[in-house]
Nucleic acid binder design. Structure first.
Lengths: 210, 210
DNA sequence: AGCTCTATCTACATTCTTGTCAACAGCTTC
DNA sequence: GAAGCTGTTGACAAGAATGTAGATAGAGCT
């Protein structure tokens, strides 16, 4: 007698576990292809479920995309803040901080996600990503460390320096290898590292200078 | 007697005119949504033809995308080079040069195209976009204008400054409003302009300094 | 005018993607 | 162990997107 055609062993997770597994798989697609590149069937295959299961847990593709973006942006903000508050002053720590930030933005994929969101014009009101609060904090610290005899820099000056730091790390992650003429599949990690160190010292010099 | 159901006035262009019209419409979609967002039906509607006409002229969607990217990248390189060679030395011209470059990258959409290409990993071997030749030219000019008594900067230092300039303009165009917390639909043009001027002077200062 | 070339169109085929639905099957509870 | 809840699934529907095929119709040429 024939076997009953490979019993379809159905795994049944808790709703929360299923949602988490689906979000994890979706996040990979988000980093790789952006929100517009997410396909329910692909995600389903990655997780090992059928695509209606995803719809059951998230209602629609749009809501899934919204959920994964929200989770990712929250995680990114959290990691960036952690790195910033955990960094002491000084040149060597500044270089180390830039390394840490870059590791998150580049290899970690945060910069890609930000770029996709910016290009698609998806800026949920909930996540403005403004750097002004960071600039204000940096400005206070900057004034406190400056020689009282030197002229006081404006808040806008500090804001611009913070913006520049963010721009540099962001662009290095997205177009660094491209602008350096390195093949995408094997970028020159050493040149990239030296640029980041050079850049960190430049930014620090701007903050310490007049 | 009935009319013959609205005579389908068929416009017939030369093959070259048709290709150009199709590429023009495709280019708008490229800037707006990136290569992955180009739809034959949308382009056809924009041009006012049926989508098989596009396939007749370009063979396939892939070849259309390839053609529009090639044309756009060539145009971009051409414009950038024109702007660079037409710029004299000095602080005011440097600020003006940055304005001109930004006008092409931001409102002109070049930065968006570059970002899409970088994110999708489409870097045709034909267009490596390396800034090294530019850095070498800048290095020669830099050495010629430096005080002979000061230590000679390395080529890598000049390369990094050129990279930083490109990174700043690129990122300002892509994520400037986002990182400044401005609504996408009405960015603060004045703040953006001041940042670019501040940034141009910073870059110039790096080239002139030691 | 008649002929040829080919740009263009309508209609259709195929594949992909999201979404719906009814049924199935683990877990928990009684 | 029976019942209920719900996570899960296959089958199907509907629409969109690319690509194909044959017919049609401008434009140039003789």
């Amino acid at each position: 007698m024939k076997k009953k055609a490979a019993a379809p062993v159905r795994v049944r997770r808790s709703a929360e576990d299923a949602r988490t597994a689906i979000l994890d798989a979706t996040e990979l697609r988000l980093v790789e292809s952006g929100p517009a590149g997410i396909r329910l069937q692909d995600v389903a295959r990655d997780v090992g479920v059928s695509h209606p299961t995803i719809l059951h847990h998230f209602g629609s593709r749009d809501r899934l995309v919204e959920a994964v973006i929200t989770r990712r942006v929250h995680a990114m903000n959290h990691e960036v803040i952690l790195a910033l508050v955990g960094s002491p002053a000084g040149e060597a720590p500044a270089v180390a901080l830039f390394e840490r930030l870059f590791a998150m933005l580049g290899p970690g994929g945060h910069a890609r996600v930000v770029a996709f969101l910016a290009l698609e014009g998806r800026v949920p009101g909930a996540h403005p990503q403004s750097l002004m609060p960071l600039a204000e904090a940096a400005h206070v610290a900057r004034l406190a460390r400056l020689d009282p005899k030197t002229p006081r820099p404006t808040l806008e000056d500090t804001h611009f320096i913070v913006l520049l730091a963010a721009f540099g790390l962001f662009a290095e992650a997205i177009v660094g290898p491209l602008f350096r003429g390195e093949p995408e599949d094997q970028p020159n990690l050493e040149t990239s590292r030296r640029f980041r160190a050079w850049f960190a010292r430049l930014v620090l010099g701007q903050l310490e200078g007049p």
